[in-house]
């Protein structure tokens, strides 16, 4: 193991490491802690210039209550959910199939198609912006959740296919051959043999795509406007202009907007990290 395990070092080194850890963490999360502190302060603290000290009264419920009951925040959160979940299902389904095709079969152009998915996944969004916006308007889907979902599914399929294909490649191929010898139809091999083995990959991608889509801002601004369809990342701008300079409420709002992917991460950590490393680093 590298670096040398701390247990093998002197007692002094162990103690200083143990005390350095929380210190480093606090320093690392300082901007966030400041915002968390903002979000439980009463308004009077800002008037009196008590910006960084302890809150003079504990106003967590009052502040977060106003976020939920006096703004469009719940609508934006619901929109985010209604955009994110169909995208996750769509992208994972499409890429599981594409990954199966690219990972199991040998045919002309296999690698070319695979590389097309990878390359497309790396392009700057801006090169897609004008035509995709146009297409969405032409399909009468501008400012709808469906318009956003369709694009997200398409774009995420690139990354997901890369992941799925590599995962399927690593599965034991003799299993598939054995099924073929038995005369099992190809689609049944996909459904009954490959798919059950892909559960870890499906979980990893689902968690990852959830986070990516929830946090998307660019496409939300390009393809939607207003509280009917906008997800929370875009809606927070409107929220902030509603509570201009009310830092305690704006902080509470941002924390609420950031929370779902954070919760997702802490609940599904193992899968999340497996997805992030693209399966390339074990």
């Amino acid at each position: 193991m590298f670096p040398t395990p701390i247990e093998k070092r002197s007692r002094a080194a162990q103690l200083s490491y143990q005390s350095l850890l929380p210190l480093a963490l606090i320093l690392w999360l300082l901007p966030l802690l400041a915002v968390a502190n903002f979000s439980i302060k009463p308004e009077s603290d800002f008037v009196n210039g008590n910006y960084w000290g302890l809150p003079s009264s504990f106003d967590l419920f009052a502040n977060y209550g106003r976020v939920f009951f006096e703004s469009n925040m719940p609508r934006y959160l619901l929109n985010s959910l209604l955009i994110t979940i169909p995208t996750v299902i769509g992208a994972v389904a499409l890429s599981a199939m594409a990954g199966f095709a690219l990972g199991v079969y040998r045919f002309k152009g296999n690698l070319l198609i695979f590389f097309m998915f990878i390359a497309g996944n790396f392009v700057p969004f801006q090169i897609l912006m004008v035509p995709v916006r146009d297409l969405t308007i032409d399909m009468n889907l501008y400012d709808t959740k469906t318009g956003l979902i369709l694009f997200h599914i398409a774009f995420q399929t690139g990354f997901c296919t890369l992941f799925m294909r590599n995962f399927i490649r690593a599965l034991p191929f003799p299993l598939i051959e054995a099924a073929r010898v038995e005369g099992v139809a190809e689609w049944k091999i996909f459904w009954y043999v490959v798919l059950p083995l892909m559960k870890p990959a499906l979980a990893a991608l689902a968690v990852l795509i959830f986070t990516f889509i929830w946090n998307d801002y660019f496409w939300a601004v390009v393809l939607t406007q207003g509280p009917d369809a906008q997800p929370v990342t875009a809606g927070i701008t409107e929220f902030n202009s509603q509570f201009r300079a009310a830092y305690h409420l704006m902080s509470a709002g941002s924390i609420v907007a950031a929370l779902p992917p954070v919760a997702m991460f802490f609940l599904m950590q193992k899968h999340f990290i497996a997805g992030l490393t693209l399966g390339a680093v074990k």
Binding site: L94, S95, M97, A98, F100, A101, L102, V104, Y105, F107, N110, I113, M116, F117, G120, V123, I127, L128, V130, P131, V132, L135, L150, F151, I153, A154, F155, T157, G158, T161, A185, E186, W187, F190
Partner: peptide, 28 residues
């Protein structure tokens, strides 16, 4: 079956990807 299945499995992903990613690059 062996030749056709991969095409069927790829079709939806390629369709989506072409419409929303590949063709827009050329359009831009």
């Amino acid at each position: 079956e062996i030749a056709v299945t991969p095409l069927l499995f790829l079709a939806p992903a390629i369709l989506f990807f072409a419409v929303y990613v590949i063709i827009p690059i050329a359009q831009s």
